[in-house]
Simulated assay, not measured.
Amino acid sequence: MLLHEDPAVTIRGISVSDMDNNVYLLTAKKSGAQVLIDAADDFPAIEHLLRDGAADAAGPAKVELIITTHSHWDHVRALPDAVAATGAKTAAGAEDIPAIEVPTDVSLEHQDVGRFDGFSLEAIKLRGHTPGSVALLYRAPDGPAHVFTGDSLFPGGVGNTQKDPERFATLFNDVHDRLFGYLPDDTVIHPGHGKGTTLGAERPHLDEWKSRGW
């Protein structure tokens, strides 16, 4: 599914598995450089996504990097096949790397920027759902920003922290400061499961989330 198109990039996404995991692909229109976010499951479906992305590009498409937003098993089931088929490098938040069975080439820290031929992505560390969860920020040249939040922010609240008050506080504070305090309301949120939202749609509920503790 085509989620966004601008002069530089297309963003496509698919849902895989009975857990409704989202897999996202950014493709640079001119160069064909691609970044795949969360090779969650169903590699044949991901191959189809890659072919659709390749058709968006004037140049030959190539997956430059596969980024895993966090180490939970449902977000990495197709990662071995994706790496084998594409030869792409892999990236994940530093603290989550030991829990990912596929070797990780790039260790991500907060506000690291990956520069590809036609676009950039900024890593935003959102700790709490897992210790090294990362979101990826794409700043569109002529429209709202796009953030791929993994399981750290959804419509209606932050990600699951297993009723641990310390983990919830960490995640809530990171989401509050590093997303809502950093980006405007028209920013589009692409979560790890289900439908997307915007920061503006969710901002009025921040106090409610903080009070309920999840």
Rank of each mutant, 00 (worst) to 15 (best):
D52Q: 13
E208C: 05
S152P: 04
L171V: 13
A135W: 03
A169Y: 02
S71F: 11
E208L: 14
G194L: 09
D42C: 06
A145F: 00
A140V: 06
S152M: 14
V63E: 03
D151A: 10
L49F: 05
S107Q: 11
A92P: 12
P60H: 04
D151Y: 01
R139L: 03
S71H: 14
P165M: 05
H72D: 12
W214T: 11
P184N: 04
V113F: 05
D186P: 05
E47D: 04
S71Y: 09
P141E: 00
S107V: 07
L183T: 06
R12W: 14
A57C: 09
K163A: 14
I14V: 15
H110N: 15
V76I: 15
D105N: 12
L199P: 05
G32Q: 07
T161G: 07
W209D: 03
F172T: 12
G118I: 09
V9G: 07
V175Q: 07
A8R: 13
T197F: 01
I124L: 13
L153K: 01
F180Y: 13
G159F: 10
L108D: 04
L50A: 02
Q111Y: 08
R127S: 15
L136V: 05
S120I: 09
V102P: 07
A85E: 10
N173M: 11
L179N: 12
I66R: 03
R203W: 03
G150H: 03
V158K: 00
K163N: 14
W209A: 02
D186S: 02
R167G: 01
R115V: 14
R203V: 02
E109I: 01
K125I: 09
N21P: 00
D42M: 03
S133W: 00
L3A: 15
I189N: 06
A123Y: 10
A140E: 06
S120T: 15
F172P: 14
L137D: 04
P141S: 02
D177M: 14
L183D: 07
H190G: 01
I11G: 03
L25V: 03
S31K: 07
V35L: 09
V175R: 01
K30P: 00
A61V: 07
A85F: 08
G200V: 06
H110K: 06
G53R: 04
R203S: 04
H110Y: 13
W73L: 15
F116T: 04
H205Q: 14
G200T: 06
D41W: 10
A45S: 11
A84Y: 08
G159W: 11
I11Q: 11
L65Q: 10
L108W: 00
A58T: 14
T161D: 09
H4M: 11
V175P: 14
A45G: 03
H110V: 08
L108R: 02
W209M: 13
K195I: 10
E166L: 12
F119C: 06
Y138T: 10
W73M: 14
D164G: 04
R12H: 15
G93L: 15
